[in-house]
Write a protein that binds this DNA or RNA. Structure first.
Lengths: 340, 340
DNA sequence: TTGAAAGCGCTAACAA
DNA sequence: TTGTTAGCGCTTTCAA
């Protein structure tokens, strides 16, 4: 299979490479006749531009980067596949490619960002799951590289982001549980270096305070976001001398693990104990019992973040630099009236 | 931020661009002293090669492509995130980038392959979820482009693949259920144009035949792989005049939906009815009841496929062109003795 | 051991 | 309206 380049088309049409290039790019200083001819021949020959030559010349890549923070082999947070689909589809619509890498958080991860920046492999980044002390953000800011984050930073939020209002969301959850009569409410939080952990824990505390419930250290556990750990942490909570009547998990996956633990202890979730999640991944609707959780439009968020990034790259002004979404509480069967 | 190129280093060291290039690539016709100097300066200046210039020159991309077949917004098959992590991590280890696109199966999808091929944007493809009449495979074969598939084709299997033995796996499932006393066994199959549907359905039929159970059309349903549809199909099965005592779902997601349906009908899964899945996604262990299913080492398969592809790209001989894995039955709580 | 020069395929300033 | 030329940053002959 011989590669069709501008040169080949030039030879075939008897035109110069330049003319062919301009005809194909629909410049208006090329005669209609020539354009027609060139386009015809190009189509016949199955011409596709060499993207690397274009990129070398134009000094941009039409590619956006997304580095997924993965943890080991059994990584499969459905959250990420949905986000990825949202980003990827929007990128494709806007004519951009998506370069995906997977790295465990740490040195190598930051290194991956740096070298993609230095090598100008992508025009910008979508950054997911912001962290308290986020080396990725620092690196990108220092290089003055375009990026949009899904999530906020701890202090200096001088970059475009989309985030959901985790504090508000968790207050919603607590209000809901309190309205059902619960007062001994436990929380399984994400690792505290993740920014969304901060907001969700804060919302948890605020919600309790609003209801006039004192915080109890024993009822606050930290998990690693997996079902497995949700299970483990729930077991610890259930084994407490005075166990909670409701467990608020800061993501759906841990909530599933917690449900499983409760069920293994013979409790009926939604009756003997209430359990809630956060994210509303598709599974939440189909677990048993179905999971009361906070809905985040993950796919749409992916699209928004992607679109903002591309506007940024193109030098267009953003309508809004910072988008904070008000999430919605989905009341399902895993939360129910306190039965004494 | 001024871009550091070979030219800049050349100027800084007083050497020629050529020498700098060779020094950096550790050619042995460069004096140690020069190499040392060049490397030092390059490091100081933070030099990173322009990958597009390299690719244009070398005519290969060090990138592999993966186009995920996605269906709509609520796409979030954990299967894919795990596969992606497997492919991505191995690719990174071997010095390759991963270009991910998402397309719904169809015209545009094939188009995406074609243009990535024509534009030589990637050195090869990982192709997932083979189909009965697979335009992607035809396209790639015709172009003589390197690819490795996760899954086999219907007839001409003259390409490298990794697959699991779905027939064998399903026979395992049926044997298990039969040993528990079940004889009215239903199947929720994937769309029949997917190759793995063929094998799994076949295994289902074979299993029944081995047990001397006649096939009943009413007990065979086709679903779209989502929880939602698993739910719907299970409802249809449960509403049968003479409903099944066991439902074999061809993937875990539909099995979860089916469990949910059964539970909504007041049945205790694992007791009143047995339900099995296929894939063993992480969730399978933490559903309630935990799901009896077929374990596939998805992450590892991703790694294998990736490694085979890179060998292919590099022109190395493959140890094995075709790998067929014997999957393992994970017996959990969703399947139990038939209670009459 | 080093450098000059060509060229990968493309775009764009400038001339004609 | 078209062609000539230069150059994006790199690798790789070929000469020196």
């Amino acid at each position: 299979m011989t590669v069709v380049t501008l040169k080949v088309i030039a030879k075939a049409t008897g035109k110069s490479i330049t003319t062919v290039s301009r005809a194909l790019n629909d410049y208006d200083d090329v005669s209609e006749a020539t354009k027609e001819l060139v386009r015809q021949v190009a189509a016949d020959l199955g011409y596709v531009p060499n993207i690397f030559a274009q990129r070398l010349q134009k000094q941009h890549t039409d590619t956006i980067g997304l580095i997924l923070p993965t943890f080991g082999p059994r990584f499969s947070d459905p959250f990420f596949s949905e986000l990825l689909a949202g980003v990827g589809n929007r990128a494709a619509d806007l004519g951009y490619d998506l370069l995906v890498a997977t790295r465990a958080p740490g040195e190598e991860e930051v290194q991956a960002y740096c070298s993609m920046v230095q090598g100008r492999q992508v025009d910008g980044f979508v950054l997911v799951r912001t962290r308290r002390k986020d080396a990725r953000i620092e690196c990108l800011k220092k290089a003055d590289y375009p990026f949009v984050a899904f999530g906020r930073a701890e202090e200096d939020n001088d970059f475009p982001y989309v985030d959901e209002d985790g504090v508000y969301a968790m207050r919603l959850v607590i209000q809901h549980l309190v309205s059902l009569g619960h007062r001994r409410i436990a929380c399984i939080s994400p690792p505290p270096d993740l920014m969304f952990a901060t907001y969700r824990s804060q919302g948890f505390q605020d919600g309790l305070a609003e209801a006039g419930i004192g915080a109890e250290d024993l009822l606050f556990r930290v998990g690693d976001l997996t079902q497995r750990d949700g299970y483990e942490q729930a077991i610890v909570l259930l084994d407490l001398p005075s166990p909670p009547t409701a467990i608020v998990s800061c993501n759906d996956l841990m909530a599933f693990g917690a449900m499983s633990a409760a069920q293994d202890r013979g409790l009926v979730v939604g009756k003997d104990i209430s359990i809630t999640g956060f994210d509303d991944i598709p599974m939440a609707e189909y677990s048993h019992p179905s999971l009361t959780t906070i809905h985040q439009p993950i796919y749409q968020i992916g699209g928004m973040v992607c679109e903002m990034l591309i506007q940024l790259i193109r030098g267009e002004a953003l309508e809004k630099e910072h988008i904070l979404l008000k999430p919605e509480l989905m009341v399902r069967q895993s939360s129910g009236l306190l039965t004494v």
